[in-house]
Write a protein that binds this DNA or RNA. Structure first.
Length: 332
DNA sequence: TTGTGTTTTATTGCCTCC
DNA sequence: GGAGGCAATAAAACACAA
C-alpha cells in the first residue's frame, strides 16, 4: 500500500468479519425485513433488488450508522457457528459483489445531476444505498472514467465526420482543378495555332516545321524516336523558353506563383511529376522537399495520383503557367 | 460446460490543491 | 501532509458462442 493510503473495504474480507456473507445469507433466507436503511430509495425499491449474490451492502458504515446492530450483520454468529460451510466461507478472501440494478440506477441519476461528489453527498448517498462512502466514491470515479471514454468516442466521431466532409470538398476541388487544367490546355493550344497562323516567327516554329504535327501531342520523352533534327530543335526551344520563363518567375512577388511555375517547368519540359525531385537542380530539390514537408500527409498520395504525366501540348509552352497553384485548395 | 471477451468493482501510485 | 482525483491495472462477475 504505497503513498500511505489505506482502503479497507470493511465487508466480508479475509479478516473473517463475514458481514457481507451474513447479509447475503440473510437475504436469501428472506430476512431482509430488518432493513437497516430507511431511505426513500430503499423503501421504494423491491426487496429483491438487494438480494442474492448481486447484492452489495453497506457494512461498517451502516453498521455504525445504525447503532451497530450486531444481530443484523451477524445473524448466524451464534446460531450457526458450528456450520463448517459457513465457517469456510467466512474465511474466504473477499469477493467482489456487483451493485444491484436499483443501486446503480440511483447512482446514475445522482451522477446525471452532478458527476462530482462532495463529501456530504457521498455520505448521504452511501447512507441511502447502504454502501460505504468509499464504494460510492469509487463508483463515481469509475463512472467518470466511462463517461470520459464515451465522450472521447463521440468527439472522435465528430472529427471523423468533419474530416470526411472536408475530404469530399477537397476531392471536388481537385476534380474542378483538373477540369480547369484541361480547359487551359485546350485554350493554350488554340492560342498557339492562332499565333502560328498569324505568321509570328519564333525559334520554335522555325525549327519545328518538320515535326509540326507530332510535337503538340507527344511528350518529350516520347520524342526519342524522332530524327536528329527535331531533337535539337526541341532542346533549343526548351532552353530558350525556360530562361524566359525563369525571368518571369523571378519578377513575380507571389510565392505561390513561383511554386506553380516551378512545377510547370518540371511538368512541361521533363514530363515528370510535380513533386519529383530533380537531381540536377539542388535548389529546386530543396523547394520540393519543403513543399512535401509542409503539406498535410494525406495530400501527397492525391497529388501523385493526379495525372501530371499528361503531355503538354507543346514543349515550349511557358507563356501560360499551366500549374497555377493559386486555385489549389491548400495554397492560400 | 467451457473458453473467451466484456463490464464492473476495487486497488495502486502519482499528482494537485488547500 | 492529508484528501481527493485520475490513469492504469487487477480481478471478479457476467454474457455468450461453440
Amino acid at each position: 500500500m504505497a503513498g500511505g493510503r489505506m482502503y479497507t473495504s470493511g465487508n466480508c474480507s479475509g479478516s473473517g468479519d463475514g458481514s457481507s456473507l451474513c447479509v447475503l445469507i440473510q437475504s436469501q433466507k428472506g430476512a431482509r425485513s430488518s432493513q437497516p436503511l430507511d431511505s426513500p430509495f430503499l423503501s421504494a425499491s423491491t426487496s429483491s433488488s438487494f438480494l442474492g449474490s448481486r447484492s452489495m451492502v453497506s457494512f461498517e458504515d451502516v453498521h455504525l450508522a445504525n447503532g451497530s446492530n450486531k444481530s443484523f450483520f451477524r445473524p448466524f454468529e451464534h446460531d450457526e457457528n458450528g456450520d463448517e460451510d459457513f465457517d469456510e466461507y467466512f474465511h474466504q478472501p473477499e469477493k467482489k459483489r456487483r451493485l444491484s440494478v436499483d443501486q446503480v440506477q440511483f447512482l446514475e441519476k445522482s451522477f446525471e445531476v452532478e458527476n462530482k461528489l462532495e463529501p456530504e453527498r457521498k455520505v448521504q448517498l452511501a447512507k441511502d444505498l447502504g454502501l460505504q462512502p468509499r464504494q460510492v466514491a469509487i463508483w463515481f470515479q469509475n463512472r467518470r472514467a466511462r463517461w470520459k471514454t464515451k465522450q472521447l468516442e463521440k468527439d472522435y466521431d465528430i472529427l471523423q465526420t468533419s474530416y470526411n466532409n472536408l475530404k469530399a470538398d477537397y476531392d471536388n476541388l481537385l476534380k474542378e482543378k483538373d477540369k480547369l487544367k484541361a480547359e487551359v490546355v485546350i485554350l493554350t493550344d488554340k492560342l498557339h495555332l492562332k499565333e502560328k497562323e498569324s505568321g509570328k516567327t519564333e525559334l520554335c516554329n522555325v525549327n519545328n516545321t518538320l515535326s509540326q504535327e507530332q510535337l503538340p501531342q507527344k511528350p518529350i520523352a516520347d520524342s526519342s524516336s524522332e530524327g536528329e533534327v527535331s531533337k535539337v530543335s526541341i532542346v533549343a526551344c526548351k532552353q530558350e523558353d525556360i530562361s524566359s520563363a525563369r525571368s518571369d518567375i523571378f519578377d513575380s512577388d507571389s510565392p505561390h506563383y513561383t511554386d506553380g511555375v516551378h512545377s510547370s517547368l518540371l511538368e512541361t519540359c521533363d514530363s515528370s511529376y510535380v513533386f519529383e525531385p530533380d537531381q540536377s537542380d539542388l535548389s529546386q530539390d530543396e523547394d520540393d522537399n519543403l513543399s512535401k514537408n509542409f503539406l498535410p500527409a494525406y495530400v501527397f498520395p492525391k497529388l501523385e495520383e493526379a495525372d501530371y504525366s499528361e503531355p503538354p501540348t507543346s514543349s515550349c509552352n511557358f507563356g501560360f503557367p499551366i500549374e497555377d497553384h493559386s486555385f489549389w485548395p491548400w495554397s492560400y
